[in-house]
Amino acid sequence: MAQRPDGPWDPGLQIERTTLAWLRTTLAFIIGLLVLLRLMGHVNVLAALVCAALALPLGLTIGWLLWRRHLDGERRLRERAPLPGGALPAAVTALAVVAGCSGLAFVLFA
């Protein structure tokens, strides 16, 4: 019979599912922005470059925050400490705002 983990769940699965959900959300935003930038480049190259300069570094920062949150969450879960704070949700919110403003710029400049 399999050994039951100490607690009501496997400590790694919750963090892994959460990490994968954040990764899917971030990738969806980045792919959407890349498509929008491709369309915007035909209308106004300067606006497309400004949006790309804001969005792509923010996407890389979110990837780094995601990885750091995953490792920190696993460690804290094993130590039974409070889980990580809200830097990742704030960064994804900023990416969503950049995506929305990019879409608005595309509509206004098109």
Rank of each mutant, 00 (worst) to 15 (best):
L36I: 02
A99D: 10
H70T: 06
P11L: 12
S102D: 13
R17F: 09
Q14S: 12
A110R: 14
L20G: 01
R75D: 07
D6W: 09
T26D: 07
E16Q: 13
G73C: 04
L58Y: 01
C51N: 03
A105M: 12
T61P: 01
L23C: 05
A87D: 02
G59T: 07
L46C: 00
T19Q: 02
W64K: 06
E16I: 02
C51R: 00
L46R: 03
M1S: 15
L49M: 02
P89D: 06
L71S: 07
P89W: 15
T26G: 12
A94S: 13
V92T: 14
W22G: 03
L20I: 04
L83N: 06
E74N: 12
V98A: 11
G73D: 05
L54K: 06
L95H: 13
L58F: 02
L36E: 10
W9Q: 05
L83C: 06
L36Y: 01
R76H: 09
L23R: 14
D72V: 06
A110H: 12
A53T: 15
W9Y: 05
L37H: 08
R80F: 04
A96V: 05
F109G: 00
A53P: 08
R78I: 02
L13D: 14
S102V: 04
P5D: 10
A21W: 11
A47E: 04
W64C: 05
P82I: 08
P5Q: 13
F106D: 06
P84F: 12
W67V: 03
V43F: 07
P57L: 12
I30F: 04
R4C: 09
W9S: 06
P11G: 09
H42L: 06
D6F: 12
R76V: 04
L66A: 11
R80M: 05
L54M: 12
A90L: 11
A91P: 03
F29N: 14
W64P: 00
R75G: 03
R4E: 13
D6T: 09
A99Q: 12
A47Q: 04
A105C: 14
P11D: 10
I31V: 10
L20K: 04
G41K: 01
Q14K: 07
R76L: 14
A81R: 10
A94V: 07
L58Q: 10
L104K: 15
W64Y: 10
E16L: 11
R17S: 09
A81P: 00
P82D: 13
L71D: 07
L60H: 06
A96W: 04
M40W: 08
A96H: 08
G63A: 05
V50D: 13
V107K: 02
L65T: 03
V97G: 04
I15E: 13
L34N: 08
V50Q: 13
P8I: 00
L46P: 00
A94I: 05
G100I: 02
A28C: 04
A94K: 04
A94P: 09
D10A: 15
